[in-house]
Structures are given as C-alpha cells and as structure tokens.
Write a protein that binds this DNA or RNA. Structure first.
Length: 904
DNA sequence: TACGGCCCCTAA
DNA sequence: TGAGTTAGGGGCCGTA
C-alpha cells in the first residue's frame, strides 16, 4: 500500500512552488484519485500529481463557476473504481492481479529492499487489474540485466575478479559523466550450454555478467525474463491455469468524437460484461436528454476538454479503444487542446509526466470499417462535416441527434472487440508466447518466437547467442517448388490435396532445431550412426530426438511463425541451415506426392483413368483423376491423401481438401475454380456480361470510383529507379498541397486520364478527387487495353473461340464515346423562377415563400419542410454509410444536382 | 518491337 | 535497433 496510509485519500497537495490560486482551488474541489493500488514493496508514487499544473496555467483551471466544477466532480466520482477493502488497506492480504502491461523505468535503487546497492537502477512496472477491478501498478526492484559470455578456458576466481575490474574501468571510461557507482554489478561463473548446434557435453562454463542498467546490455531481452527473487518477498507468477486462467474485469473505454460539433461520447465496459458500465456524452452547448445516457453539456470547448480529461482520470481505463483514434481522434484532441491553450490537457496518463497514448497501437485500422460491416452488419456512420455544423448550430434537439451518432460510433469498436474476442485472443496469445500484450500490437512476429525460445532455453539451461548484424551477402536460400501449371479449362472435377501446416510438420518430423544441428566438422568428428541423424535434402545434418530433442519442434506445438523466424537474416537468431532444410524437405514432399499419385492411380494399377497432377504450389497438388463424377473424385482424393500420409514421417499429413469443378488454370499462381456445388459455368452469359461492361466502359457509363487504381508508396520519390504512375502523382500532389499529399507508407489512389497520344501512363495519372472537381475526362481505352484485355483473354481464351475478336472488337466496342457531362445542355435555355412552397404557383416577390392563396398555412408548411429535411438527412446518412463500403473508404462521391462533391 | 529490370502484389 | 520467408505474375519503363 501507499506508505501514506489509505491510498484512496488524495495526499495533501504538496506543492514545491509558492502557494498559488490553484492550491486553494484544488483544495476546495479535490479530484478523487484513480484507485490504483500498489504492492507492498513499492514506494514509488504513481498517483496523478497536481504539481503538473504550471503556474501560468493555474488561472485557466479555475472555472467561472466553482459550483459547476464541483457538480462535475461529484458526477464523475461515481465512476471511480470500487473502493479498496480494509484487507487491502491494512496490508493483510496478498494481491493477485492479471498483468496487462509491463515496462521499466530508471529510478533510484531501493535502500530498504536492496541495502547493498545504490545509484540508478531499473525498476520494473507491472500494470494490471485484480479480480475485484482494482488497478494495480506493481513496482519490482532488484531486476538485474545480464548476459552470458563463453568462459575463457582456464579462467579461475582470481582471473574473474581481475576481468571484472578491467571491464568496470572500461565502462567508467566510456561513461565519464554517469553517476552510476558500479556498472558491472558482478560476474558469476555458471554452467550452461549454447542453443547452437548439437553438443555431446551437457554444459560448459559461462560467465554471467550482471549490469546495473538494461541500457548497458544493449538489448531488451532481459526485460522478458521475470521471476526475480527479492529478499523476503516473492513475487509469484502464476501459470494461467484454473483460478488464474480467468480474465480480470479490465476497464475498456471506447470513445468517439464529432470534432466540428465538439462532442465526446464515452462508453466504458468491464471485460466480460455484455453492456457498458458507463455511457455518457459530453457536448458543447445544451443537448436534449438521451435515455440511458448521461448527457453533460458545457458552455465552452475548454470545459468539454477538461471534463473529458477528468473523466479519463476518474474512470482510469486499462485499455482505450476507438475507431482510428490513434490516427485521428487523439492527435486532434491534443492539437486542439494546444490551440485552445489547455496545456494541462494532454496529461491523460496514469504516471505523472507521461503523456497520453505515446504508443499507438493499430488494430487493423485499415479495414476496420469493412470488418465491422462484415461482422456486425453495420458501419461507423461518420457524419459529414457540413451536417455536423448544421446539427451543432441548431438547437438542443439537433445536438441530441449528433450525440446519438457519436454514441453509436463509440459503441461500434466495443462490440467489435467483443464479437471478435480480441481481448481473449490477445491475452491468450500473450500467455502462450510470454510477451506483454502491447508487444502483440506494436511489434512483429519474431518477438513472439524469440520470447518462447528464451523461455524454453531457460528451462533447459541453454543460452542464446547474440548474433551480430548479418552481412547482406549471405541470406538467400531456395524456397518452395511450384509445379509446372498445365494451363487449361478443366471440365472434369479437380481434387485438391494439401499438406496441413507443412513447414511446422517438417520441423517436428525431422527434429529441426538450433540445438540439433550438427556442424560439418562434428559430422566428420563424431561419426554419429545413421540411425541417430537425419540428413536433409539440402545437405544438413540434424540429430534425432533420442540424442537431443529440439526446442523449435516443442514451440511449434503452440505457435507457427517459426520457419520465417529462422530465415530472417536481419532477425535475432537466423539459422539458414534450418530454413533451407525445411524448404528442401517441402520440395521433396511435393515432388514425391506428384510422383506417387501419378504412379499409383493408373489404368495399369486397376483404376478407370490415369491420374494427372495439373498443378501444385508449395504444399498442395491439384489432381485430375479423370473421373467425371464429383463424388468419385472426392473418394479418389481421400484415398490418395491417406496413401501418401502413410508414407510420410509423422506428423506430416496430406489431406484431401476440396474438389473444384470446373477449374480454370491460367498459369502458376493464377487459377479460378468453382466448388462442386456450382456445377455449371454459364459461358454465353459471361460473354454477354463482359460485352455489356465493355460497352458501358467505352460509353462513359461507369462510376469514377471503379476506375481508381491504388498502389502503395513504399519509399520516397527520389529512391525510385523508374517513374511510376503513383509515384509521379504523389509528387505532383505534393506540389499542389503538401499537407494532403500521400506520404511514404500511404496508398495512392489514382485514375488514368486522357492526354496526348504517346504520353506515358505516369504522366496521365491523376488524383480522383482532382478529376472530379475539374471534370477531367478519364481514358477508357487505357483501362480496356492495359487493365482489362489481357486478364480477360487469359480467362476466356481456353473456353471461347476467337475470344479477342468476340470480346474486344465486337460491335459493342463501336459505341460512340461521350465525353464528360457538362452544363451545356438544355438547361441553358431554362430560366429560374420562384414558386410557392405550398402549391408551386409562380410568385414574383423574392421575399415570399408562399403565394397569397397559401398564406396563413405557414405552420403546416414549415412542419412539412422540416420533416422533409429530416428525411433527406436520414437518406444522406444511409447513402454515406453505403458509400463507405466501396473503395475501402478512401474516396467517396455523391452527386448533388449536377455538382460533384467529395467526402472523405 | 523485344527484353531486362524495377516495382507491386499475391500465393503459399 | 526493429523487421517472418521465397516464388512468381504482370505492369510498365527504358533501352537496344
């Protein structure tokens, strides 16, 4: 517990500065604390600290009406975490919590706990939640970063102390200004074995070098090792079994803002609950009540911001989610707060001096909308900014409508999280791989493999070498075999046979691992009997499990990106002997499969037809058994799969997957097929469809969005060796407006426009929005010739005679192309006239909306008009939602009269 | 016009 | 300073 006593009480304001108005203010309207609890041996004050408020900002904190402020504080206080029970406060019980995050800070070595060290030390912070919903920050002292080196032969205790002194001196030299009293804490002689290569001896001497700070090891690997023993206090890491496999009730905050409307909607859900614990919305200006929602209205934007900050502090969420919040909402809020001069706003974190959301985690932000459309059959309804302004500037009722939109959009990410069980998946993944949850979101695949490798190695007393940055000269090896594709349109069923998880199975079947690999010297020197080793098709030697069981095969039982890990020459522990052995076995398997199938399923062998493998890639083969009957093909497929599985080493298994019927094989990696449930391909219908579409294309009857090509901008303009359409466009856009131009990593949408004959494609690429705004004609011919014709012919040539003539040169291609629509038509002859809203009679007075006849029925017509507007708005909302489905939400258009407008 | 090479994307 | 892999098709530029 906090040494100050009851941690629920805010410690008295302890300003180091002179008394200021803020002191008084904060004393009269104290902000309750988030219910953070701390472990016994924690002495760091993690509470949000009032000294964050600078002198110059103090005035601004005082709201015009102190009562209002108090009312808000009272209102927010009901959302605080549950109060701590006496058992916690009296320190009489141990604290069990689920870890959510872990990091470390550099702090002062703990005198009480670590009486024999001093100076800066790494303090590990474990953030978590207890079963009752209390927030925990556990500070672990005594963590010591270390690494191993091979012990030079013949080194004794005296040599070690000498070595220690030398090392210490060198460190001091390098860090003259450091106040660290001792860099190398100690050096121990230990017995370990390297994970690299099969070794007959069980262990050999290593030196364990323990450093004062992790930065000194130049590696963060040490952080992952937990379970540090501290005098008299055990920090126990429970295996996630039984009681400890449960999920703590994390507080998940899902929020959304409607920026022009200055609204924030917040939903807080406890992990495991169906319904949000808190639903509220904070609005600028009045807002009509919403059932089941706490509506809070403020007079100034600043008050909204501060209220939201207070809310975050009070609720103390463990996880913050939202639609694109890292890229939009949070940066917007922080920037806007700066503009408004609310310096204290960005401090949303739990730890003083740490800013809100420094790490932005992405949860497939790219396609969240399509994902939510898919899984929830509803989408985020971004309200167009012009509508936002209108609704905001209306009355309490229109602002209420805006608030409802906002709430709905805040709810969506929460429901998605539930539906896809992200929380469970990430927690389970973290448990399996042994990395913090944040790593799963912010780091790559390889950290998971490395973490498991470290964990297993520790159990087995193995150490992992720190490989130097690999030179780029080595690093490639042969990959998988892709069987020659016998291109054609197959009108008999094609059976597909797949190896289930081929690469992991190979690693398990042949015990491929760092620690089972035999060096070429040892192959000669040790003269291991053939029955104890496997020689891989790529020429490497690995011992069988009876001599040494591999660690990688063990890990594979839990996770499967191990193959890529071993082949990552820029990674932490590449071992191309393993990766090339894996692919070599894979190549052997697929060739073997092809041969076996074609040898066994023959007329000579008693079957109706000779089977033919028409294609295969990496781990699959496509077989034409020659039978016309789908059922027969399936049976033969099963038979073949079983036969081949029987000849392979366990757990390698070939499975019968499916039957394609018919099947169109264009080339390697290019095929299409229909499952047997759809037995017919309507060729005349397909031809007609293609003809109609081409005609529409040439007649300009297509929506511009269908012409948008999108390519990724992978590097800056200068680094491209050749000119490419999307790169050139990005450069042109940068000249037009650097702020909105695509950056490296963005995807660049473009269309190809008409231009002088001979102009290169990269000169004709244009921003779709620019094209719409300036009525620039696109070039249908380009799309027909460069984008459509070749793939079309590849598909149709095997199934249609004279495909090119029929599809690309038929009468349907001779339609006259109409250029972009203009205002030159009949409307030029029309004249605008005012008419009565009620009866459409012409009226001459420009100030009037009703004719004399309708006068007196204003209320009726007003009501009618209002409901029409509301209907149209509703329609707009739905159109907008639908609109977002195409083009992955990049650029959308709608027409308003004849004028094109863009929405983004 | 043919062809090598860059670039992007996808299969597995 | 953090990063799974190779095979292969195809668009299109630049050059012979």
């Amino acid at each position: 517990m906090n040494k100050g006593g009851n941690p629920r009480k805010r410690p008295p304001p302890s300003y180091t500065r002179q008394p200021s108005p803020a002191t008084k203010h904060q004393a009269t309207a104290p902000t309750p604390l988030p219910q953070s609890t701390e472990e016994d041996f924690v002495d760091e004050d993690v509470f949000l600290d009032e000294t964050l408020v600078g002198e110059e900002d103090v005035e601004s904190l005082i709201l015009r009406n102190l009562e209002e402020r108090e009312a808000l504080t009272f209102r927010l206080s009901k959302w605080a975490r549950p109060p701590l029970s006496n058992a916690y406060i009296s320190q009489s019980r141990s604290i069990v919590f689920q870890q959510l995050e872990i990091d470390y800070v550099i702090g002062e070595s703990h005198e009480g706990l670590l009486p024999y060290s001093s100076g800066p030390a790494a303090i590990i912070r474990i953030f978590g939640v207890t079963g009752e919903g209390h927030s925990v920050c556990c500070l672990v002292h005594g963590f010591e970063p270390y690494f191993y080196i091979n012990c030079p032969p013949g080194m004794g205790p005296d040599d070690i102390s000498h070595f220690h002194q030398t090392l210490e001196d060198r460190m001091k030299e390098k860090n003259k200004n450091s106040r660290v009293p001792k860099f190398v804490r100690r050096i121990e002689l230990v017995q370990k074995r390297s994970i690299m290569y099969y070794q007959q001896q069980k262990s050999q001497p290593f030196l364990k070098i323990v450093m004062a700070l992790p930065t000194m090891v130049a590696s963060c690997r040490g952080i992952l090792d937990r379970g540090i023993q501290i005098d008299s206090i055990d920090l126990i890491s429970h295996a996630p079994e039984g009681e400890f496999s449960k999920m703590a009730p994390f507080r998940i905050l899902s929020f959304d803002i409607e920026c022009a409307g200055r609204k924030v909607a917040n939903l807080v859900t406890l992990q495991g609950e169906d319904q949000p614990l808190i639903r509220n919305v904070m609005t600028l200006n009045s807002c009509s009540p919403i059932v089941g929602v706490d509506v809070m209205s403020f007079d100034t934007e600043k008050e909204v911001f501060l209220a939201w900050r207070e809310f975050i502090r009070e609720v103390d969420p463990d996880i913050i989610i939202g639609y694109n919040i890292c890229k939009f909402d949070l940066p917007y809020l922080i920037e806007r707060a700066q503009t408004l001069g609310i310096a204290e706003f960005p401090i949303l974190g739990r730890i003083r001096n740490s800013r809100a959301m420094q790490r932005d985690y992405k949860l497939s932000s790219y396609s969240l909308n399509s994902v939510s459309a898919h899984f929830l059959s509803e989408q985020k309804e971004d309200v167009h900014h012009s509508i936002i302004s209108d609704l905001q500037n209306g009355n309490a009722e229109t602002r209420r409508r805006l608030a409802v939109y906002c709430l709905k959009d805040a709810y969506l990410p929460q429901r998605l999280l539930d539906k896809l069980m992200y929380a469970y998946n990430y927690v389970e993944m973290a448990r399996v791989t042994g990395v913090p949850i944040s790593f799963l979101l912010s780091r790559g695949q390889s950290i998971k493999v490395l973490s498991q490798l470290l964990r297993k190695s520790k159990q087995k007393n193995l150490v992992i070498p720190n490989v130097k940055r690999a030179g780029s000269e080595q690093g490639t090896y042969e990959g998988a075999t892709v069987l020659e594709a016998k291109a054609g349109f197959y009108e008999k069923p094609i059976a597909t046979l797949d190896f289930a998880s081929l690469y992991p199975s190979i690693m398990m079947a042949y015990n491929l691992c760092y620690c089972t690999l035999v060096t070429p010297e040892d192959v000669r020197r040790l003269n291991l009997p053939p029955e104890c080793v496997n020689r891989t098709p790529s020429g490497e030697t690995f011992v069988k499990p009876n001599l040494q069981k591999g660690i990688l095969p063990e890990i594979l039982e839990d996770a499967n990106s191990v193959y890529g890990f071993t082949g990552a020459t820029v990674g932490q522990l590449p071992c191309l002997e393993i990766s090339s052995s894996v692919t070599s076995y894979g190549r052997q398997m697929i060739e073997h499969t092809k041969k076996l199938v074609e040898d066994k399923f023959t007329v000579l062998g008693g079957y109706e037809h000779n089977a033919e493998v028409i294609y295969g890639d990496t781990d699959s083969v496509m077989v034409q058994f020659g039978v016309s009957d789908v059922e027969a093909a399936m049976n033969l497929g099963r038979e073949a799969a079983e036969h081949i599985s029987g000849t392979s080493t366990k757990p390698i298994k070939l499975e019968f997957e499916k039957v394609y019927y018919p099947y169109l094989l264009i080339s390697k990696k290019r095929y299409a097929g229909l499952f047997w449930t759809n037995p017919k391909k309507d060729i005349p219908g397909a031809v007609q469809y293609v003809k109609n579409t081409i005609s529409d294309l040439l007649m300009n009857r297509m929506d511009l969005s269908l012409f948008v090509i999108t390519k990724g901008l992978t590097k800056t303009g200068d680094d491209y060796e050749v000119k490419a359409a999307h790169v050139e466009l990005a450069e042109r856009m940068r000249k037009r407006d650097a702020a909105t131009a695509p950056n490296v990593g963005d995807r660049v949408p473009y269309v190809i426009i008409k231009a002088a004959k001979g102009a290169k494609a990269y000169e004709r690429s244009e921003d779709p929005i620019y094209v719409l705004e300036n009525n620039i004609p696109i070039d249908p011919q380009y799309y027909l010739e460069n984008q459509i014709s070749k793939p079309l012919l590849r598909i149709f040539e095997p199934i249609l005679k004279n495909a090119s003539k029929e599809l690309l040169h038929g009468s349907h291609t001779r339609s006259i192309s109409i250029s972009t629509p203009s205002n030159s038509g009949i409307m030029k002859f029309a004249k605008k006239q005012l008419s009565c809203i009620g009866c459409k009679a012409l009226i001459s007075n420009a100030d009037q909306t009703l004719c004399l006849h309708c006068k007196g029925r204003e209320a009726e017509h007003y009501y009618k008009t209002v409901s029409q507007v509301s209907e149209l708005e509703e329609l707009f909302g739905r159109l907008w939602t639908q609109c977002q489905e195409c083009q992955a939400g990049i650029v959308q258009y709608f027409t308003e009269g004849r004028k094109h407008r863009k929405i983004w």
